[in-house]
């Protein structure tokens, strides 16, 4: 905190119109790609899902950089830690929930067979 007087403001980069426009154009392109892939069809469902996922991640990063001005050089370290912590929670909560429930489904789904076999295994 003692070093804070060296920077003129809390946020050293002052945003510019060009910065926002660059972010807007990039975000628009990264939106048009997944929407186009869904609208045009032709690709396999799996391929389109990969396109949707990848463009979403890149676009989130683009908006963090150009709109929220997150920057590994200038943003306060504590803020980056909080962001990293949030990302870890995203992975744990969404990934973990899907993992647990798909595992549960895999064990429950062949209900007829599995229920019959259970007593034998025990």
């Amino acid at each position: 905190m003692s070093a804070s007087h060296t920077s003129p403001t809390a946020n050293p980069q002052s945003p510019t119109y060009t910065g926002y426009l660059t972010g807007y154009v990039l975000a628009a392109v990264l939106s048009v790609i997944p929407f186009g892939a869904v609208m045009l069809g032709g690709l396999s469902t799996h391929a389109v899902m990969v396109i949707i996922g990848l463009t979403a991640l890149i676009q989130a990063a683009v908006q963090l950089k150009y709109f929220l001005h997150i920057d590994f050089k200038h943003s306060p370290k504590e803020n980056l830690f909080a962001l990293a912590f949030a990302v870890v929670l995203v992975v744990l909560m969404i990934g973990g929930s899907l993992w647990i429930v798909s595992d549960l489904n895999a064990r429950m789904m062949p209900a007829m067979g599995a229920n019959m076999e259970m007593p034998q295994e025990l």
Partner: peptide, 30 residues
């Protein structure tokens, strides 16, 4: 400036916790 920095940090923590609220809802939907 110190005060502004602290306020900015506190607000950022709120934003991150709000994002985590959405993560729980996304996980539920998934």
């Amino acid at each position: 400036e110190d005060r502004a920095r602290t306020e900015q940090m506190g607000y950022w923590l709120y934003l991150m916790s709000d994002a985590i609220l959405f993560v729980a809802l996304f996980a539920t939907y998934a």
